[in-house]
């Protein structure tokens, strides 16, 4: 199909789709007048039932924990896909050889190095804090994990590829990625084997508003943080290696 014909077909389809979308949203409750019973019930009962003051995290890891398992495996499968695709063209899996062959991209600006040196630990600490208090205040394993990985990217930005690669060896990221996904699955399966429901909270609810709240949700939260951090680090490392290694550099 040529370009003109494709756009003509799309224009008809898009006009129909847009009309349907508009027709369906005008019957939704007006903006700001939410009426869903499920969300309101969680807001009323989650704190008393689960002792977690962050109801969003309680939804992610408890009320809709099974859904999150699915999300984790989309994430896992996508990262495995990227790694398999990009590693196919590497000469060697050897970490030391990768480091030796990489271009010298050392950052020489003192200003950038100093800003990076200050920002990296601050972002890393903020990431840990977001994960740790994810059940109490805004935060959680997904958000904290992204920030933890982000703080590691700062090492690349402020120092260069070699320091970044030293800090995030591929075999560590590989196993952290797998362990995170496995831990989430097993934390669900464990209670199932003991005769309870999948993802049943087997540690009790703990003390409301403290780090002790949430019971086994805390473990799921940290498993997710490990998986998300490792996923982001792996993605970044794989693309970065195809950029700094002369033998595999694809886009020129």
């Amino acid at each position: 199909m040529n370009r003109r014909a494709r756009i003509a077909v799309f224009a008809v389809a898009a006009a129909g789709l847009a009309a349907l979308l508009v027709a369906s949203v005008v019957d939704l409750p007006a903006f700001g007048h939410y009426q869903g019973a499920y969300g309101n019930q969680l807001n009323r009962e989650a704190v008393a039932e689960r002792h977690t003051t962050n109801v969003v995290t309680a939804t992610v890891f408890d009320y809709r924990g099974f859904d999150t398992l699915g999300e984790e495996f989309i994430l896992f499968a996508a990262v495995v896909g990227v790694t398999l695709l990009l590693r196919r063209h590497k000469d060697s899996e050897d970490h030391q050889e990768v480091l030796r062959k990489a271009d010298d991209d050392r950052v020489r600006s003192d200003a950038i190095r100093i800003v990076g040196l200050l920002a990296m630990p601050a972002l890393f600490l903020l990431g840990l804090w977001l994960v740790a208090f994810g059940l109490v205040t805004p935060g959680g394993g997904f958000q904290g994990g992204v920030l933890l990985a982000g703080s590691l990217f700062v090492v690349f930005l402020a120092a260069g590829f070699r320091p970044y690669a030293h800090l995030t060896p591929a075999h560590w990221a590989d196993s952290a990625e797998g362990s995170g996904a496995a831990a989430f699955t097993l934390l669900g399966l464990g209670p199932l084997l003991a005769g309870a429901a999948y993802l049943h909270n087997f540690l009790g609810s703990g003390v409301r508003g403290t780090l002790e709240s949430g019971g086994s949700m805390t473990l799921l939260n940290w498993a997710t943080a490990v998986e998300v951090t490792a996923a982001m680090v792996l993605l970044f490392s794989e693309f970065l290696e195809s950029y700094v290694l002369p033998s595999v550099r694809p886009l020129q």
Binding site: G36, G39, N40, L42, A46, V55, A58, T59, L235
Partner: peptide, 17 residues
């Protein structure tokens, strides 16, 4: 509503991958 927020936050991270 916490449910739609939970759906959105997990999907933002997953969509990046």
């Amino acid at each position: 509503d916490p449910v739609v927020q939970a759906l959105t936050l997990t999907d933002v991270v997953v969509s990046v991958t």
